[in-house]
Computed example of a mutant assay.
Amino acid sequence: MLLVVAVAAVLAAGLRAGTSSTSGASGPTPAPELGGTTLDGGRFDLAEAHGQVVVVNVFASWCGPCRDELPLLADTARRWSPHGLRVVGLNLRDGPEAVRALLAETGTTDLTVLPDPDGTRAVKWGVRGVPETFVVDRDGRIVARQQGVVTRGWLDQRVTPLLGVA
């Protein structure tokens, strides 16, 4: 119960804080562990994605801005996956039916989604609210973070240099 209260407090504070972006101003930091069974029954492990650039987006079905940015994230995954990009959604505090309905509604059923029903993974990542997005470089370090909605420009500016494409 205490963990649920702590997660709720962290997320509430983050939602009040607004949006901000960091690009590793204090330098890249090692990404926390992230892995497990995906919504579609597959497996994802960030440690096994070493050598790829990974965008981790924390979202929830009850978050309007999350709903708006999911198509952009799916499009980014389709566009840059041949160059070594993975986009992973970390779904916060939802049941599988709600997530599947959201993905179907937004046309993003091809996204890799890890459920985080109790918020413990989000806490390990230091998530302050939803949506929140992290860019992990090929060496497993967080090099950029966006609290709030990402844009195509933000993604292109932070991801394409890591992929070595123009």
Score class of each variant (00 low, 15 high):
residue 19 T to M: 06
residue 19 T to E: 14
residue 19 T to F: 03
residue 20 S to C: 03
residue 21 S to K: 00
residue 21 S to N: 04
residue 22 T to L: 08
residue 22 T to H: 10
residue 22 T to K: 05
residue 22 T to Y: 02
residue 22 T to S: 14
residue 23 S to R: 15
residue 24 G to C: 00
residue 25 A to F: 09
residue 25 A to K: 11
residue 28 P to D: 08
residue 28 P to H: 07
residue 28 P to R: 12
residue 28 P to Q: 08
residue 29 T to N: 00
residue 29 T to F: 05
residue 30 P to E: 08
residue 30 P to N: 10
residue 30 P to D: 07
residue 30 P to I: 12
residue 31 A to R: 02
residue 32 P to C: 09
residue 32 P to A: 10
residue 32 P to Q: 09
residue 32 P to H: 10
residue 33 E to S: 13
residue 35 G to S: 11
residue 35 G to N: 03
residue 36 G to M: 01
residue 36 G to D: 11
residue 36 G to F: 01
residue 37 T to F: 12
residue 37 T to G: 12
residue 38 T to M: 04
residue 38 T to H: 02
residue 38 T to L: 03
residue 39 L to G: 10
residue 39 L to P: 11
residue 40 D to P: 01
residue 40 D to V: 03
residue 41 G to I: 04
residue 41 G to C: 04
residue 41 G to P: 02
residue 41 G to K: 07
residue 42 G to P: 05
residue 43 R to Q: 15
residue 43 R to H: 15
residue 43 R to I: 12
residue 43 R to L: 13
residue 45 D to I: 01
residue 45 D to W: 03
residue 45 D to C: 02
residue 46 L to G: 05
residue 46 L to H: 07
residue 46 L to M: 09
residue 47 A to R: 15
residue 48 E to N: 07
residue 48 E to Y: 07
residue 48 E to M: 11
residue 48 E to D: 14
residue 50 H to A: 15
residue 51 G to A: 07
residue 51 G to P: 08
residue 52 Q to D: 14
residue 53 V to F: 07
residue 53 V to D: 05
residue 53 V to L: 08
residue 54 V to A: 07
residue 55 V to T: 03
residue 55 V to W: 12
residue 55 V to L: 15
residue 56 V to K: 07
residue 56 V to L: 13
residue 57 N to W: 00
residue 58 V to K: 01
residue 58 V to Y: 05
residue 59 F to G: 08
residue 60 A to P: 14
residue 60 A to N: 12
residue 60 A to F: 12
residue 60 A to S: 15
